[in-house]
Amino acid sequence: MGTVRKQLRPWGALVVAAALTFGSDGFGQSEEDLAARRQAAQDLADSAFDLLQKERYSAAAELFDKADETFHSPVFVVYQAEALEKLEKYLAARRLLQSVVDEKLADYAPDAFREAQDEAKDRIAALDERIPTITVEVAGADAGTQVALDGSPFAGRLGEPLQVDPGEYEIEVTGPAGRTDRATLEVAEGDREVVALDVSAPGDAIDSVPTEPPSEGDGEGGLPPWILPTIAYGIGGVGLIMGAAAGGVFLGKQSELEEACENDGDGDPKTCPSEQQSEGDSVKTLGNLSTAGWVIAGIGAVAGTVLLFVPIGEQGSVVSVELHLGPGWAGVGGAF
């Protein structure tokens, strides 16, 4: 501890003697009482220092505390904080050091006391780098949300770091309607941990709800169930329009062709003049188109209905519908 340690070791020469001479503890007491307290504080501090050197930190901290109670000296408090720091009781050590910094010293206080304050300031700055912190963030929190650290009320504020000693901690939060969430974590020296908990109502935070990827059996990669039926009905609608339109033209052309064949003067209504051959081919094509359109319309309606009511990809299977068209014919095939 630098200068403070040099001043602390010769107890009777400076520290206790200075406290005896300048400290407020001695006001209103007899010389005999002051001498007795000085000697007791000196003995306790000597024993505490020896224990500190032997790394018996718990016993050293206890004796330094008793020495300070017997006769107060900021130097004793700084050494007590050192012993606690060795035990990784950082928060208790910091509180003691802060009490030394905050102490109002009299103008006639010895230099050892002021040096102890300077040492305490330096130790606090170093400790703040080593003391771990926990920051608790809670989704869905309201004004009544309660946070507990190891069963006790959380001393910090949500979203702000709280200093803690190294160790394992359990954090539990209770939010609206009694919804709870908890986490267990272990923090080491210098850690800066952030704990995210959630007490929002189901459906409040859609982004936080994990979505499962489509299974391997979903042949369409997870398309919405209405997509395929809509496509099938759309194709059927196109076929219906095509069949109706081609059928209307077919009937008109066919009537004209029959009239031309009946009036060709050969007496046979079933035979047509050669100049009407292209017209006959056109009528035949229109008839095929009309038939195909009606077939497509029927297939679309059937496929759309099947796709609408039969689950796709159930037990690894996929519903498929195939359309087959050829000159003068049409067909449909599928697997369900």
Rank of each mutant, 00 (worst) to 15 (best):
T145Q: 05
P269A: 01
R157G: 15
Y108P: 05
Y108M: 11
I124W: 05
G144V: 05
D65F: 07
A139C: 08
A126L: 09
E170H: 00
D50R: 14
E168V: 03
S152E: 13
F22N: 09
F336A: 04
L286W: 02
A18S: 13
I124D: 02
C272R: 01
A292N: 06
F64V: 04
D191H: 07
L149E: 01
G23W: 02
Q39C: 08
E186Y: 12
I231T: 03
V295R: 08
E189R: 14
A297G: 06
S278W: 12
I312P: 09
E31S: 13
L228R: 03
L52H: 03
E88L: 14
E62H: 07
E69I: 11
A61T: 05
P132I: 09
A120M: 05
K66V: 06
A126F: 09
G28F: 10
A201W: 01
D181C: 05
F22G: 06
P327R: 14
G26E: 09
D264A: 03
P10R: 07
R123F: 05
R123T: 04
E88S: 15
D281Q: 15
K66H: 10
K253P: 01
F76V: 10
G190I: 08
V209G: 07
E189M: 13
D281F: 14
W294A: 10
D207P: 08
V321M: 00
Q29L: 15
R95P: 06
G243L: 02
D107H: 08
A196W: 12
A260I: 03
D65W: 10
R5L: 12
G167N: 07
G234Y: 04
V209D: 10
A183T: 00
R130N: 10
L307K: 02
D266G: 04
P202D: 04
V195C: 02
I235S: 02
L257I: 03
R94D: 06
G313S: 07
S278Q: 15
D65C: 12
A183L: 01
E193C: 10
D33G: 15
I171Y: 00
G175R: 00
Q163G: 13
Q254T: 07
K86T: 08
G144E: 14
S73C: 08
L87F: 09
R182A: 04
R95T: 14
K270Q: 12
L52T: 05
M242Q: 08
Q53D: 12
F76C: 08
G265F: 09
T145C: 04
Q29W: 15
K104S: 13
F22M: 08
D65R: 14
G293A: 04
E103A: 11
G239I: 01
F71G: 08
R179P: 01
Y169F: 09
Q315S: 14
G298I: 00
G217T: 07
L52W: 03
G333D: 00
V101M: 07
S99L: 07
G334I: 00
V164D: 03
A35F: 12
Q29F: 15
D218N: 08
G12D: 15
I124H: 05
A301F: 09
V4L: 10
G221M: 05
G252R: 10
